[in-house]
Lab assay of single mutants.
Amino acid sequence: MASQGTKRSYEQMETDGERQNATEIRASVGKMIDGIGRFYIQMCTELKLSDYEGRLIQNSLTIERMVLSAFDERRNKYLEEHPSAGKDPKKTGGPIYKRVDRKWMRELVLYDKEEIRRIWRQANNGDDATAGLTHMMIWHSNLNDTTYQRTRALVRTGMDPRMCSLMQGSTLPRRSGAAGAAVKGVGTMVMELIRMIKRGINDRNFWRGENGRKTRSAYERMCNILKGKFQTAAQRAMMDQVRESRNPGNAEIEDLIFLARSALILRGSVAHKSCLPACVYGPAVASGYDFEKEGYSLVGIDPFKLLQNSQVYSLIRPNENPAHKSQLVWMACNSAAFEDLRVLSFIRGTKVSPRGKLSTRGVQIASNENMDAMESSTLELRSRYWAIRTRSGGNTNQQRASAGQISVQPAFSVQRNLPFDKPTIMAAFTGNTEGRTSDMRAEIIRMMEGAKPEEMSFQGRGVFELSDERAANPIVPSFDMSNEGSYFFGDNAEEYDN
């Protein structure tokens, strides 16, 4: 993207840094990872977990959730003011799984939030270390993106479920800051804005008074975040219109849905970061690795190297396929839920299948599930090659597409044709070009129609051997075009429920 120079890199967003050079960025990201790792080690000690239990991804998720809940100030305040039966607002906890007599047992633990905050700050040299908290939120978000298709949420806001490739980060909490905003897809931002506008339509006082002023500035800020994701002048001009509207209503909703559809071809720039579970960072720190000293990046080879040398386990339900569970977590670790499966298959070195073909449910185990038949197995999170994460949407291309997802959002900077089903997408653009945004709409449609099938995206960008740390010898991959490109292809993934 041309304006790259004016933006802070995501590592800076990730670490609240002012302008830093590459070495400083690597050190501050490393410091953040160190903090998460030290916190995780301490929690495993508190909970008396064995090494194996500490490497269980379900335990990692519970521990991450506990610290996120302990620092969720708004919710904590709300819980104190609106006490609900049987919930102690000062405590947080969740299921911890232990191996007892050759069987997995679930144990519900409860801790004072104050105590968890103390352990977290102690692991982070006394700081609140917001960057580390956001990092864990993005890992949870990436896992949700890989596990669930947001059909219901899309339909509720009037969008087409086939636009799911635009929904990265749709389950990120509001408090995820600049680093969170960077990884949100165009569809996620559109959905947040539509929800806001709908509230304004239904509630006369939404934009009024002292609160209304705050609401208005939040609305304009979200519009600017979305505008910054678009790469064409016409899309940005249309966002200006939406932002400046005196009284946002149905016309703005129409414009936003139009823009979301246009992003299936004229893709937005959305950041991709490899955020790993805390149970990967903990053992690495415990083994003596100093992330701050060595430096770390979320968008280069580092996460690949770390996963190459990590042992992570997962509980497996009786009829689940461990290899499929591994694929789910591998995609989440690489922030690749909406990437082209052919690119992923090449990088991973084994075939990556669409969601609907995987015999696996989510990673988390519900409290009512029976533990008797639970097994555990090693997650295979290694890769054959590594590639640089991208934040450009890439230019655009036609490809055989599917009944489910009709476009992709690249996660890796790797040369390819970008699949999208042009006739299906263009069919949504018939007729409606009147109104105050008509010239911009016409211009956007013209650009979409001009998108050429034979153009290559990320020209000359390749993948790298894991021994090639400096990215000196790019390998331009070859793809098996007979395979499906979309992950949520004609899909039956479970729906995400809060």
Results as ranks from 00 to 15, higher is better:
Ala471Ser: 02
Ile96Leu: 15
Gly132Ile: 14
Phe230Ile: 07
Arg26Ala: 10
Arg216Tyr: 07
Arg446Trp: 00
Gly158Lys: 01
Arg261Tyr: 07
Pro248Leu: 09
Met238Ala: 15
Ala85Pro: 14
Phe412Gly: 00
Ile347Asp: 01
Ser367Trp: 10
Tyr313Arg: 07
Trp207Thr: 00
Met456Glu: 00
Asn321Phe: 05
Tyr487Thr: 01
Phe479Asn: 04
Cys279Ser: 08
Arg446Glu: 15
Met163Ile: 15
Arg26Pro: 01
Glu244Leu: 02
Ile265Asn: 02
Gln409Trp: 12
Ile194Tyr: 05
Ile475Ser: 03
Ala85Asp: 01
Met189Leu: 15
Tyr148Phe: 10
Arg117Cys: 13
Ile425Met: 06
Phe420Cys: 03
Ile406Glu: 04
Gln398Trp: 03
Glu114Trp: 14
Asp127Asn: 11
Gln122Pro: 03
Glu484Ile: 13
Arg416Trp: 12
Lys91Val: 00
Ser287Cys: 11
Asp127Glu: 13
Ile119Asn: 10
Glu455Cys: 14
Phe39Ala: 15
Glu443Tyr: 02
Ala442Arg: 00
Asn247Gln: 10
Asn142Gln: 07
Arg65Pro: 09
Arg236Trp: 07
Ala401Cys: 02
Asn498Asp: 00
Ala472Tyr: 10
Asn334Trp: 02
Thr430Ile: 01
Asp112Thr: 05
Gln311Cys: 00
Gly158Val: 03
Gln405Cys: 13
Ile63Gly: 00
Leu61Phe: 11
Ile119Phe: 08
Gly228Trp: 05
Asn205Lys: 11
Gln405Met: 15
Glu114Ile: 08
Val352Trp: 05
Met426Cys: 15
Asp160Ser: 01
Ile63Ala: 14
Arg26Asn: 00
Arg38Met: 10
Gly300Pro: 04
Ala70Trp: 08
Asn432Trp: 02
Pro419Phe: 04
Ala218Pro: 09
Arg348Ile: 10
Thr188Glu: 12
Asn59Phe: 07
Gln122Thr: 13
Gln122Asn: 04
Gln364His: 08
Gly54Phe: 02
Gln415His: 04
Gly200Cys: 07
Gly288Val: 07
Arg118Leu: 11
Arg19Asn: 03
Glu18Val: 15
Val186His: 13
Leu298Phe: 12
Glu449Leu: 12
Leu315Tyr: 05
Leu328Phe: 04
His272Val: 01
Val109Tyr: 01
Glu244Trp: 02
Ala181Asp: 08
Ala129Val: 13
Cys164Gly: 04
Ser165Cys: 13
Leu166Trp: 01
Gly394Ile: 12
Ser262His: 04
Thr45Ile: 08
Tyr289Phe: 12
Leu56Tyr: 06
Asp421Ser: 15
Ser9Leu: 15
Leu306His: 04
Ala428Tyr: 09
Arg441Thr: 07
Met189Ile: 13
Glu434Thr: 13
Leu381Trp: 04
Ile96Ala: 04
Lys31Leu: 05
Thr151Arg: 06
Asn224Val: 13
Ile257Met: 14
Gln231Trp: 00
Gly295Val: 11
Pro161Thr: 04
Asp290Ala: 07
Gln308Trp: 11
Leu166Gly: 00
Phe479Ala: 09
Ile425Arg: 00
Gln122His: 14
Pro303Lys: 09
Ala27Pro: 02
Arg317Lys: 12
Met191Asn: 11
Asn142Gly: 07
Arg267Gln: 07
Asn319Arg: 15
Ala22Lys: 15
Ala493Lys: 11
Thr350Pro: 00
Met191Val: 11
Glu320Ile: 05
Gln308Tyr: 00
Ser310Lys: 00
Gly394Arg: 09
Ser377Lys: 00
Asp72Cys: 09
Glu465Asp: 07
Thr396Asp: 00
Gln149Asn: 06
Arg391Cys: 02
Ile316His: 08
Arg317Cys: 08
Phe412Gln: 01
Asp421Gln: 10
Ala337Thr: 10
Phe39Pro: 10
Ser262Asn: 08
Ser69Ile: 06
Gln231Ser: 09
Ile63Glu: 03
Trp330His: 05
Asp128Arg: 06
Asn142Ile: 09
Pro318Arg: 10
Thr147Gln: 12
Asn21Thr: 15
Ser84Trp: 11
Glu252Leu: 03
Ser478Glu: 00
Thr45Ser: 14
Ile36Gln: 09
Ile201Ser: 06
Ile41Gln: 13
Leu110Tyr: 02
Gly212Asn: 09
Arg175Asn: 05
Glu469Val: 13
Val186Gly: 00
Glu18Asn: 10
Met448Pro: 03
Asp302Glu: 06
Thr147Gly: 08
Ala218His: 03
Arg243Ala: 10
Ile425Thr: 15
Ala260Trp: 06
Tyr10Thr: 08
Arg65Ser: 11
Gln241Phe: 11
Tyr52Glu: 10
His135Asn: 10
Leu166Arg: 00
Asn395Asp: 05
Glu469Gly: 09
Ala387Ile: 02
Thr232Glu: 09
Ala451Gly: 15
Asp34Gly: 12
Pro354Ala: 14
Arg106Phe: 04
Ile265Val: 15
Ser457Cys: 14
Gly228Pro: 11
Asn224Phe: 08
Lys214Cys: 03
Ser245Ile: 06
Asn473Ser: 14
Ala271Leu: 07
Ile201Lys: 04
Ser457Asn: 15
Ala251Lys: 07
Val109Phe: 08
Ser141Gly: 14
Phe412Thr: 00
Asn319Phe: 04
Trp104Arg: 09
Ile406Lys: 08
Cys44Val: 15
Gly349Phe: 10
Tyr385Gly: 04
Leu61Gln: 06
Ala336Met: 02
Gln364Ala: 07
Ile41Phe: 11
Gly460Leu: 12
Arg221Val: 03
Gly37Ile: 10
Glu292Lys: 10
Arg65Thr: 07
Gly462His: 10
Arg65Lys: 14
Ser245Gly: 15
Arg204Ala: 04
Gln409Tyr: 12
Met43Gln: 03
Gly37Trp: 11
Thr62His: 06
Ser262Tyr: 12
Gly228Met: 13
Glu107Gln: 08
Gly180Pro: 03
Tyr289Arg: 13
Met222Asn: 15
Gly17Val: 05
Lys273Leu: 04
Pro453Glu: 00
Arg361Gly: 08
Asn202Cys: 08
Gly17Gln: 14
Asp160Gly: 06
Thr147Ser: 10
Gly450Glu: 00
Ala263Cys: 15
Thr350His: 11
Asn124Met: 10
Val414Asp: 00
Asp101Ser: 11
Gly435Ala: 08
Arg391Asn: 04
Glu469Arg: 04
Asn250Lys: 07
Ala2Ser: 01
His272Ser: 07
Glu484Gln: 09
Glu114Cys: 09
Arg216Gln: 03
Arg446Ser: 13
Asn370Phe: 07
Arg400Gln: 09
Gln20Asp: 00
Met222Asp: 02
Ile445Tyr: 06
Asn321Ser: 10
Glu484Ala: 10
Glu469Cys: 01
Val343Met: 13
Asn142Ala: 10
Ile33Phe: 08
Leu418Ser: 00
Met167Tyr: 09
Ala123Asp: 06
Thr378His: 04
Ile116Gln: 07
Glu254Met: 13
Val476Met: 06
Ser478Lys: 11
Asp302Tyr: 06
Ala493Val: 11
Ile257Ser: 01
Asn492Glu: 01
Gly187Cys: 10
Leu133Arg: 10
Asn224Gly: 04
Ser9Lys: 00
Arg261Lys: 14
Ala336Phe: 00
Ser9Phe: 13
Met196Pro: 02
Ile316Val: 13
Leu49Pro: 10
Gln415Cys: 08
Ser367Asp: 04
Tyr289Thr: 05
Ala403Trp: 01
Val183Arg: 03
Leu276Asp: 08
Thr188Gln: 09
Val242Phe: 05
Glu254Ile: 11
Leu56Phe: 04
Tyr385Met: 13
Glu114Asn: 13
Asn473Leu: 12
Asn124Ala: 08
Thr6Val: 00
Met163Gly: 02
Lys293Asp: 06
Thr424Asp: 15
Val285Leu: 09
Asn395Trp: 00
Ala472Gln: 11
Ile347Lys: 06
Leu381Glu: 06
Arg150His: 06
Gly435Tyr: 07
Asn397Ala: 11
Thr147Ile: 13
Asn144Thr: 08
Pro474Lys: 00
Val414Trp: 00
Asn59Met: 08
Gln311Arg: 15
Thr437Ile: 05
Arg391Phe: 04
Asp145Gly: 12
Ala218Gly: 05
Gln405Asp: 01
Thr215Met: 03
Val343Glu: 10
Ile41Arg: 10
Glu494Arg: 04
Pro89Asn: 03
Arg162Glu: 07
Ser245Asp: 00
Thr390Gln: 01
Gln327Ile: 07
Phe346Gln: 10
Tyr496Ser: 05
Thr62Ser: 15
Ser367His: 15
Leu264Glu: 11
Gly356His: 07
Ile25Tyr: 02
Gly460Pro: 00
Ala442Asn: 13
Arg216Trp: 11
Cys164Val: 14
Ile41Pro: 10
Phe230Ala: 09
Gly228Tyr: 03
Gln409Cys: 15
Phe420Arg: 00
Ser345Tyr: 04
Ser84Tyr: 01
Cys223Ala: 14
Asn224Lys: 14
Phe346Ile: 10
Gly35Thr: 09
Arg348Cys: 04
Ser467Arg: 12
Asn205Tyr: 14
Val414Arg: 00
Gly249Trp: 11
Ser297Pro: 10
Ala22Ser: 14
Asp145Tyr: 09
Pro248Gly: 03
Ile444Gly: 04
Gly435Asp: 08
Gly177Arg: 07
Met136Cys: 12
Ser457Leu: 14
Arg355Met: 05
Arg441Met: 06
Ala471Tyr: 13
Gln149Arg: 13
Glu380Val: 09
His82Cys: 14
Leu226Ala: 09
